[in-house]
Every structure is written in C-alpha cells, then in structure tokens.
C-alpha cells in the first residue's frame, strides 16, 4: 500500500568478506565488530587511570567490575564465585560491546544478531560449567544429573533424561538463542522503522514521519537498554550455571 520495499533478510545480517574471502578467516563486518568488542573494553581498562579517587574511564572500568561482582557473581554464586570474575567480566563486556554496535552509526549491526558468537559463547559456557562441576564434584556431578537421588526410583530415568537434556542441551541452546533472537529482532525492528522513515519521507506520506521518526529514536534508546540487558542476562545465567555446578545440591 505504501510502496514499501523491505530489504531481504540477507541484506540485513549477511556481510561479505572484506579480507581472506572464502577462507575460514574470512573477515567481514561481524568479524570487525567482534574485534572491536575485544579492543574497546581492553582499551577502556588499559587507559583508565588507577588513582585513589576514580575519574573518567576508571569509573567506567571499576563500574563494570563492580556490576559483575555485586549483581552477577555474589547473588548467583556467592563469595567463592569471585575467582570467576575475569571470565564473567569478559563475557559481559564482549556481549555488551558486540550488542551495542546495533545503534552505532555506520556499523548499525549487532555482532550477536548472527549465530556465530552466541553459539560459541554458549558452548564455552557449557564447557566451563561442565568442567567446574566435574572438578569440584567428580563423577557425582554427572550421576546426580542422570540419576537424581531425591526423585522416586521409578521416575529417575525420566527425570534423569530430562535433566540431562536440560543441563547439557537446553541451557546452552537457550543462552545462544535468547541472545541471538533478541538482538536479531531488535536489529530488524530498527531496520523496519528506518526503512519506514525513508519511505514516508520522500512521498505524500511525509507527515507520517512525525510518528515513525520518534519511534525510531525511542526504539534506538530501547535497543541500547536491550544491549545491556542481554549482556547482563547472559553473564548472570553463566554465573547461575557455574553456581549450580559448584553447589549441585542447591
């Protein structure tokens, strides 16, 4: 009706390789964002002063550290989880900076709207919590999942199967899909309103810009919040899974 030409999904999320085309090291926009998601937090931490009274970047770095410590690790694991601070901080920062490029001009693409990074991170989390569970509980970690001791014997095979499926398949799958789907949906939403703004701006529907443009601005703000929220949720769930592996009885 509006003569709107919506770009195919490939145009929104698939980016051609700029370097090493066709190889396993093919370097495209997502790879660049992944690199920047590593370089930017590293630069913030590196260039932040280590003064007695924090200012500027030091506030940002210490704020991130305290956020992960106080809002992720302590509630989900407890004080003995502080040894996982580097891992959980890295996860939070990498996911957040991978997400936030969704609203940065020129890039306008979250790295986590592609499945590669969420899947890799979810698999890494799977490996980490499995390793921790085995390290601190031995084979009991697996046997308690597969053959839950507090469940009536007749139900154990069924519950054990469900627990195995839940722990080793659904947890990482949920982590990856939650992040990926949220960021992809946000990206599509922003593209939709962006396209809508362009479409109505050039024709007789110009007054509609008064509705579509504020919505685009609002959604941009909302996506900044979602970028943070998804990074926080990913780090929090990682901490919860690590906590469950450390203290399986809980």
């Amino acid at each position: 009706m509006f003569g709107l030409e919506y770009p195919p999904i490939d145009n929104l999320v698939v980016w051609p390789d700029a370097l090493f085309e066709g190889t396993i090291l093919g370097f495209n926009k997502i790879a660049l964002i992944s690199l920047l998601a590593m370089l930017i937090p590293a630069a913030i931490f590196f260039f932040s002063k280590k003064d007695l009274v924090p200012r500027g970047l030091q506030n940002v770095a210490e704020g991130a550290v305290e956020l992960v410590e106080k809002e992720v690790i302590l509630p989900a694991i407890g004080p003995d989880g502080l040894r996982y601070l580097p891992l959980l901080l890295s996860v939070f920062l990498f996911v957040f900076f991978g997400n936030i490029f969704e609203v940065i001009p020129v890039f306008q693409m979250p790295a986590n709207a592609r499945m590669a990074n969420p899947m890799f991170l979810a698999l890494m989390v799977l490996v980490v919590f499995t390793f921790i569970g085995f390290k601190y509980n031995g084979a009991k970690f697996f046997t308690d999942i597969a053959w839950p001791p507090d469940v009536p014997v007749g139900l154990r095979p069924l519950v054990g199967f469900i627990e195995l499926l839940s722990t080793f398949i659904l947890r990482p799958f949920g982590l990856a899909v939650r992040l990926f789907a949220n960021m992809l949906a946000g990206h599509i939403l922003l593209v939709t309103f962006g396209v809508l703004c362009i479409a109505v701006a050039s024709g007789w529907l110009f007054p509609l810009l008064a509705l579509t443009f504020p919505m685009l601005v609002l959604l941009t703000g909302f996506e900044i919040f979602v970028s943070f929220l998804q990074a926080f949720v990913f780090a929090l769930l990682t901490a919860v899974y690590i906590g469950l592996s450390l203290h399986p009885a809980h």
Binding site: D10, V14, I30, R114, M115, A116, N117, F120
Partner: peptide, 16 residues
C-alpha cells in the same frame, strides 16, 4: 540466518 558462519565464529573465538 540461523546457522553460524564459521569464519565469524573463528573471529569471535579469537577476539573473546
């Protein structure tokens, strides 16, 4: 869009 791109994953792994 559901399937991961291997080269993106490699860069993701290296970066992380």
């Amino acid at each position: 869009p559901i399937l991961p791109d291997m080269s993106e994953m490699v860069w993701g792994v290296l970066s992380f």
